[in-house]
Design a protein around this nucleic acid. Sequence first.
RNA 1: GCGCCCAUAGCACAACUGGAUAGUGCACGUGCCUUCUAAGCAUGAGGUUCCAGGUUCGAGUCCUGGUGGGCGCGCCA
Length: 561
Amino acid sequence: MKDNVSNLISAALESMSCDDMLGDAPLPTPQIEHTKDERHGDLASNIAMVLAKAAKKAPRDIAAIIIERLPENTVIERCEIAGPGFINFFLSQSTNLAVIEDALTQGATFGTNNDGGGKPVQVEFVSANPTGPLHVGHGRGAAIGDSLCRLLEASGWQVQREFYYNDAGQQINNLAASVKARLDDKTPDADDWPADGYQGEYIIDVANAFREGATVVAADRTVQASANIRVLDEIKDFAVAWLRREQDEDLKAFGVDFDRYFLESSLYDSDEVEHVVDVLKQHGQTYEKDGALWLRTTEHGDDKDRVMIKREGGYTYFVSDVAYHKNKWDRGFTRVINEQGADHHSTITRVRAGLQGLQSGIPEGWPEYVLHQMVTVMRDGSEVKLSKRAGSYLTLRDLIDWVGQDATRFFLSARAATSQLTFDIDLALSKSNENPVYYIQYAHARICSVMDKAKIEMPNWDVSDGLHNLEQLTEQEELRLALTLSKYSEVVRSATQKLEPHLIANYLKELAADFHSFYNAHKMMDDDRTLATARLALAGASQIVIANGLTLLGVSAPRAM
RNA sequence: GCGCCCAUAGCACAACUGGAUAGUGCACGUGCCUUCUAAGCAUGAGGUUCCAGGUUCGAGUCCUGGUGGGCGCGCCA
């Protein structure tokens, strides 16, 4: 719809340009926007004001000429010049209602596009360390990351979802030591409890299972506990597998599936970490100081150089991160998006610096990052502190069990990632009818209910019957709903380009509000059956758009509530 | 001290990346169920968009400097 009008304006501009009315500047692409106030028409353009300088004419005069030179068409009913020089477009009724047929015929694919052209994109998200259950912050990453993937898929990208496991390094040693301590019947208040040990109750569960010789099936491996409490490596393998299984189950309960789990340890096994260091050395990106090997990250925008190999040997964590991203690049992913918590933002410069130092043709801005700000959890009017080491904290699983998968996913992805998020447990629990997710789902359920009634009262009725009667839709609530429906495709495209899934949530709230207004103002099963079929077609289109939008957020569209 | 993010109605958030009279939900006031789901609708009140400058036809949006909050600044990950 926007494109149609944009093309018409461009044609008018070309005609003006031929008559040398617009100066030498190149013709701009007309900016078209939806109006906030319906008195301003359906669409508006600021093009006349943009051209004012180059054309050396008053914006309103330019606007008049543009309108005069618009090609013949059936899209625009009339135009007005308004304010400082806006051109307001009032579209024909058939143009505004065309979205109904589009939605009904395209169904689940309505709103999708092929901007991605089938190109591959890899999205890494969650990537929690296997040292404890997933908490609410991971949940936010999971909700945003998975919705990003769904958006990219809806825009024609071929998406791979990947989870990176830090199964090497000090935190894993702490985990093994913690389980070992529990096997030795120590408690966190003991004098010889491991420093930086994990104190949570779940460590006891791991220890008990290990002692009983349990078998754990995780995403890519099966580990049988040896029950030999003296062998730390076996405890480590078992504990990692145990916690990975826990995390996988929580993510499944959240509706999030990964295509690939990538293990940090595999980068050491394959010598990829070592190789990265060698290449950086060859390119003169490193130097030795204080017995350690440093990378010149300051040459790529960092505020200080970073150690790669510690004085007492061993790589620092970011070296394996660089190797991991080199691996992604070598797998052919020219586009990679990392969704992670903002508390890790300092790694961005470091990883990119390491990749640039490899001089292997990786673009400077690669990979892309989506950072989400912290989630604070309120319960009983005070903040619940999240600390893995301290033990008691609110897990993602707790949240799903309490408020449900739909509400949890919606809340965690409905806000801009750049904003901090307060998750109020009491509100989510005690007043669940205030949740916007119910408001949206209710609209969907209402439509389904009316559809069922229509089938009973009109035995041969099909939802597409009304497409022949759309001219019956003239009420304000009907037209506004249709207009909102017609914005959906643009919202999907915009949310994908900006990597902001919360725009979908905002849109769905608006759409649901327009539907509820329509529903209350007019009876769909009108005695005039011609009008009824037209309204049912409008409702059917709304049903499809609500369902498609909720799917992008990983939220269900129930047929009844 | 330095870097990144944020600041909009009492509360929680929008505002299509520079457009017209800044919107929505909750809470508050008043109405609407013998009619398709009242988890809904209608209507009213509520604002110096943190402050001070700047850029231009036009600024919640961009620039500079402040103020307040979050996160980071390790040879931890």
